[in-house]
Design a protein around this nucleic acid. Sequence first.
DNA 1: GAGGCGTGGCC
DNA 2: TGGCCAAGCCT
Length: 357
Amino acid sequence: MVGLVRDAEKIARLRRQLLAWYACNRRDLPWRRSRDPYAIWVSEIMLQQTRVAVVVERYQTFLARFPTLLSLAAASEQDVLALWSGLGYYRRARMMLKAARFIAEQRLTGLPASSAALRKLPGIGVYTAAAIASIAFGEAVAVVDGNVERVLCRLEGWEFAEGASESALKREIHLLAAQLLDPAQPGDFNQATMELGATVCLPRNPRCLVCPLAADCRTKGEHATAPRAPMLSREGAHALSIRTRRAGQQVLLEQRPSSLTVMPGLWQLPELKQTEVPGHLLRMTVRHAIMQVNYYVRIRNVYEDELKSLTVAGGARRWVSLAEAAAMALTGLTRKVLTRAHLFEVRPREPLNESQS
DNA sequence: GAGGCGTGGCC
DNA sequence: TGGCCAAGCCT
């Protein structure tokens, strides 16, 4: 399977073409302007299973609020989650905070500088350890993420065989990535491969005409991808209420119990039963996907004096101003509803929520 | 090792 | 409209 090892010339050519392409085509992303290992770390955690466009916005805000590892270590979990609100996979934020506190408690000067040491920190797996080590510290270790897998499989014509173990192929991919890696500039090489996968060697419609590796590619983009687990799409439905005080501009939020596996500790609008949002009170409907479930959520207003007659669930509750709410660890759905209801807009004169029934 | 963990946007 | 993702990690 590994046929490259004796072909030093081909390896040199691939490196040269990839790096030359990257030098001209790299996107100007904020974390590429930093050499700070902490900043690289933040970007890599945020980028896990998350689109670049979303991360670009959040990365700057996060670093402005927590500019150093020590400032993060001193933060409360709720403050960190508040900045993570809407990004999803909230465990990432919790683990990053945990790692920052661990480093601070050990009185270390910063992140460990080797991939092996990084790997021991919570939230840093094989990929992230290699990414930080190569990009921030120049360690000659290859990264393998979804992009690299796709690029190398297409390059070599490797396929995920039906029913066969994926681990053998994954091992080959790691070996090949390690062979190709340019030890002189591992950070750039790794980012170049990922960038190629993200912008040229696309999953569905690869742009082979502009690919710097096309001449050496065995598939020209034609290759079977790994069989995906069939996505179940269930329909769920529940209702949320925007509960407002008539006098003050406040909403009622409840905190999800810390024992939950999904979004523990985050704040949300109180839930209602479907029947408690009849059509004439419906303010809006929001589609919101949580994992593999599409929820069609019905929203109504509930004023404070109506609360007693409606469903009451357990959990901590707080009346908060909209400014406070905007700064809290809201679930993505709640943030979406409050934004879409224009509650986060500054409209001083307008009485809140009385425009519709 | 498979399943759990979020979300906004794209087609 | 609704299915399908996108720079993984943990258990």
